[in-house]
Simulated scan of single mutants.
Amino acid sequence: MGWTRAGRRGTGVLLGCGTGIAGLLYLAVAGAALGPFLLRPRSRPRARAALTAGARRIAALDRRRRTGCFGDRFPLHYEPGDGEVLRYVSTRAYAGTVTAVTLALVGFGVVLAAVFAAALVGGRVGPAELLWQVLLGGALLFLGVQGLRSLYALDARLARDTFGPSERELLRRRIDELATSRAAVVHAVDAERRRIERDLHDGLQQRLVALAMLLGRARRPGRTPEQAEALLRQAHEESQGVLAELREVAWRVYPSALDGPGLREALGGVAERSPVPLRLTYEVPGPLPQLVETAAYFVVSEAVTNAAKHACATGVEARLALKGGVLTVSVRDDGAGGADPAGAGLSGLRGRVEALDGRLRVDSPSGGPTTVTAELPCA
């Protein structure tokens, strides 16, 4: 198995010398023929397109060589640009030609070593000449092998940079992305838990204490019926406020509308409770995965809250559109701008979105407007 693999790679190196020399000849001939047209601005685009078309054929041969001889697996639908193809072919022309020359020199050195060995056996070589030839031949062999190794690595790096990362590289990147998103999810959950605890402690708990104090004052001996009735009326009003705040906290934790009517109704609730006017455009024809609906809801809710609390906005526009299996959520306000993408709220949103393999972008120049855009895959 090892020899078979070594044989395939050796064949790939020899074929690479051929494609490199072919690329050198092509660039020389095509460059001479198309050079006058490349110098003229009017004919330059067509001449460049003709030059690139031939270079793409040579690059396609090299891509098949890397796949067949070295086992590289490149993304099927990745198409390098014209500049990348020309740069690849020109670099490979140099590298392939140098590799061919280096292999020829190494082969020539092997022939000389065989002739020298025959002379040594025949007794025609003295000790001093033997030492000198061994040192010189060893140094040249070392330089040749190191040069071939460097050219071999250059060939692999050029293919990876031009044709896209290999499956192993994609897997490694995917592992890194999953590790990062997992850490972001843990951080977002912890921040959400602390926010809920803060809401309960600083809001509901204080209001419940005030309600208990009002009821205690109403039950205190010596109160006239009028005073007791006034205190009970205040306690009743306070209880209504506690219930409203409790519903608000529960809605921020998870809106019950997502389990019933769906995302559109939940966002309608955000618009009703928003302190600034919210104009909603909903262009999603069918139902969405539950996790995607939840993430989209929190993107809109957090962006609207930030616009009202920090940006002093007077209006917010939210647009949701589904295209190509990706839900795009865009929230734009007319506030002062200057939102910090690394802030606690936006960092939590980014972690929630990236946990679903999505992307979150924040564009908030000083003076506004601020646009928060989330792209959520629905597959």
Rank of each mutant, 00 (worst) to 15 (best):
W3V: 08
A6M: 12
G16A: 12
G18L: 12
L25Q: 04
R40L: 15
R48Q: 10
A50P: 02
G54N: 07
R56M: 00
I58Q: 02
L61E: 00
R64N: 01
R66D: 03
D72P: 00
F74L: 04
P80F: 00
D82R: 03
S90I: 01
T91S: 14
V98S: 03
T99C: 08
L103H: 01
V110M: 09
V111R: 13
A118H: 07
G122M: 11
P127I: 13
W132H: 13
Q133I: 01
G138M: 06
Q146N: 01
L151W: 00
L158S: 08
R160V: 08
R160E: 13
D176G: 11
V185F: 08
V186R: 14
A188P: 00
D199L: 14
H201C: 08
A210V: 12
L211G: 06
M213S: 14
A230F: 03
A235D: 02
S239Y: 07
Q240N: 13
L246D: 10
V253S: 10
A257I: 04
L258Y: 11
V270G: 00
L280D: 05
Y282A: 02
G286E: 13
P287N: 11
A296I: 05
E302A: 11
K309C: 02
A311H: 12
T314K: 13
R319Q: 13
K323P: 00
V326Y: 00
A336F: 03
A336G: 11
G348C: 08
R352A: 13
S364Q: 03
S366E: 12
T371C: 08
A374Q: 07
P377N: 06
C378F: 01
A379S: 10
